Simulated scan of single mutants.
Amino acid sequence: MGIKEMVLERCRKEGREESQINFVKKLLLAKRFTTNEIATFVGVTESFVLKVMKSLNK
């Protein structure tokens, strides 16, 4: 894998994570779902959801 491919893969990963964070924030703000449900919907861990929740409370 060349440098170009490595940079592109990293950008994709960062973009995907940013999208997941935004989706988790929206679901948390809806106040209809548990952290476990949100984690399942988004495809992340519950600890990821809790970290996002913590950042919203700052």
Rank of each mutant, 00 (worst) to 15 (best):
F48V: 05
N57M: 14
M1P: 01
K25W: 06
K58S: 13
E18P: 02
M6V: 10
K25Q: 12
T35F: 12
K13P: 02
I21L: 05
F48L: 08
C11S: 09
T45E: 06
N22V: 04
V49P: 02
G2W: 01
V42D: 02
T35W: 06
N22A: 15
K26N: 09
E37S: 03
R16P: 04
E37N: 00
L50H: 10
K13V: 07
K58Y: 09
M53N: 12
T40Y: 02
I3L: 12
V44T: 11
N22K: 14
G15V: 02
K13H: 09
S19R: 11
F23S: 07
E5A: 11
L27F: 06
R12A: 08
T34V: 11
K31D: 09
G15T: 01
L27N: 06
M6H: 00
E46F: 00
K13G: 04
G15I: 03
N57L: 14
E18N: 01
Q20A: 10
L50M: 13
K58Q: 15
G43M: 11
E5Y: 07
G2P: 00
T34D: 11
E14D: 11
F33H: 12
G2N: 14
V7R: 07
M53R: 15
G43S: 05
E9I: 03
E14N: 02
L29N: 08
T40W: 05
L56D: 11
R12P: 04
T40D: 11
R32Y: 01
F23H: 09
G15W: 00
Q20E: 12
L29V: 07
E17Q: 02
K13Q: 13
E46V: 10
R32M: 08
K54E: 15
T45H: 12
F48Q: 03
K25I: 14
E9G: 06
K54T: 07
E17S: 00
R32L: 13
C11H: 07
V24T: 15
E5M: 02
G15D: 02
K25Y: 05
N22Q: 15
R10Y: 08
A39N: 09
T35I: 03
I21N: 06
N36S: 07
V7L: 14
M1C: 02
E5H: 06
L56R: 05
T34M: 06
R16K: 08
R12I: 05
G43K: 05
K25G: 06
K31F: 00
G2R: 03
T34I: 06
F23D: 05
F48T: 01
K58C: 02
S47E: 15
